[in-house]
Write a protein that binds this DNA or RNA. Sequence first.
DNA 1: CGTTAATGTCAACAATACTGACATATTTTC
DNA 2: GAAAATATGTCAGTATTGTTGACATTAACG
Lengths: 165, 165
Amino acid sequence: MDRGQSNDAMLYLTDEQLLQGIELMFFAYKGFTSDPDRILEEYKYGRAHHRAIHFINRSHAITVNGLLTILGVTKQSLNRVLRQLIHDGMVESRVGTEDKRQRHLHLTNEGRLLEKELSKVQSDRVREAYKAAGPDAVQGFRKVLENMVDHDMKPSIETLGTERG
Amino acid sequence: MDRGQSNDAMLYLTDEQLLQGIELMFFAYKGFTSDPDRILEEYKYGRAHHRAIHFINRSHAITVNGLLTILGVTKQSLNRVLRQLIHDGMVESRVGTEDKRQRHLHLTNEGRLLEKELSKVQSDRVREAYKAAGPDAVQGFRKVLENMVDHDMKPSIETLGTERG
DNA sequence: CGTTAATGTCAACAATACTGACATATTTTC
DNA sequence: GAAAATATGTCAGTATTGTTGACATTAACG
């Protein structure tokens, strides 16, 4: 390997170092999605389905608008995959109790099974990468990625995994 | 924030920690591509054009097959964007001297300008993320991402930025 | 000379994104 | 209570990017 930089090299980050970072993002993201993609193929689903399933699982009873905000796509685009998932019995859409215009999204038992199947292989890869890199590296990984996220999206992230989204 | 883990927490990575990592990859990649995407729109190009331009710039005189291997798409898919870029005078295709079946790809002056415009904004974001996170974090970032890449792709990465790809 | 390799191209198809328009039900506001 | 705004769903059309499969050309290899 030996593609790292000495600590003081941060004072002037070379173009080469930045381009390496860009390429690392490209190749890592490719690897990151490859395992779930194989499973999705069997279900005739795509990455969009995976993302919907992931965030419905993570944000209990999330509304359609909430999911739209997190995913950053149009409602027409989301509706296409949501319609399929609901039709296939993976996702349930419940009328809101407070606001009856809203639809609250839940995974069905079958949806939960698929979610587990997908998150298993993806988590496995992340876990292996974490383990191979070590705890300090994980800290750094998280720090850099957090700083790469658009500021607009940060509120969305913060609420994930904390009961309701 | 306070979404980190203590060092010994690595012994058992919780599902929550792994899911956070997965989401971080999703949101960071979104931010990572957002700035170039805005520029590409003006040129009526897409991300596929960006990737082609990036790796042609990085791998001097790369062949079509070489580019195919790096990008991991079909030749029909690559050819579509390559044809446009060549037609638009961004990329030049030169017949190989050793092997005349091969086509060696080069950026034209105009292509180099576009490449600079794209890599500028993307590098800026990476640089800012690096700076905000600090040198140690960058080391960790790189370590984790390298471990996330598919083993098949590693040979491709190694040769980038080292004269010829 | 026949086979293989590198490239290009045509056609068809699928997934995912977009815009714009419109409908319905419900809530909020004046 | 009527009007405006909000949440959702849907239809139609279009663009990008990926796929398969088929076929042609040119050049290299044995």
